[in-house]
């Protein structure tokens, strides 16, 4: 009802995606199984996003307004500012790794189960 254009033709060679009906999508969306998948995803990704943005902003604010602290020498010519900067690299790599691990263990199996069932139901149903 909200579209005034027909959906684009699905004509990719060698790959014809299954098309469950809207009712089936609503049913799955309201199911406990999907709710669990959504929860595993959101409860991991959302707080982590807030955390790394806050951590980055802290770094920006310290660079701006805490120059003396950032200039403190740690070792030789290496100061707090450089250590902080490198820590941003380290946390970025760490978060990327943590997310990949979480997704492979907690998200992929659930997603795959739902996808397989929905696509096979579509094929069986017509």
């Amino acid at each position: 009802m909200a579209t005034d254009a027909a959906p684009p033709p699905h004509g990719e060679p060698g790959h014809d995606p299954a098309h469950p009906t809207t009712e089936e999508f609503i049913e799955v969306q309201e199911s406990a199984e999907f709710g669990e998948l959504r929860h595993s995803y959101r409860s991991f990704a959302f707080p982590l996003t807030v955390a790394f943005i806050a951590w980055y902003l802290l770094y920006v604010l310290l660079s701006n307004y805490a120059g003396d602290f950032m200039g403190t020498k740690v070792y030789g010519n290496i100061n707090v500012a450089l250590v902080f900067g490198l820590a941003q690299f380290a946390t970025t790599f760490l978060i990327a790794w943590l997310y990949a691990r979480h997704a492979a263990a907690r998200l992929d199996p659930k997603a795959e189960a739902i996808k397989t069932r929905m696509e096979s139901r579509t094929e069986a149903g017509g």
Binding site: H15, P17, A18, T22, Q29, R38, Y41, I114, K115, E119
Partner: peptide, 14 residues
Amino acid sequence: AELEVKSLTGTGAH
């Protein structure tokens, strides 16, 4: 419902 289920599960993805 379609978008959310597709986006999290890959159902019917191209």
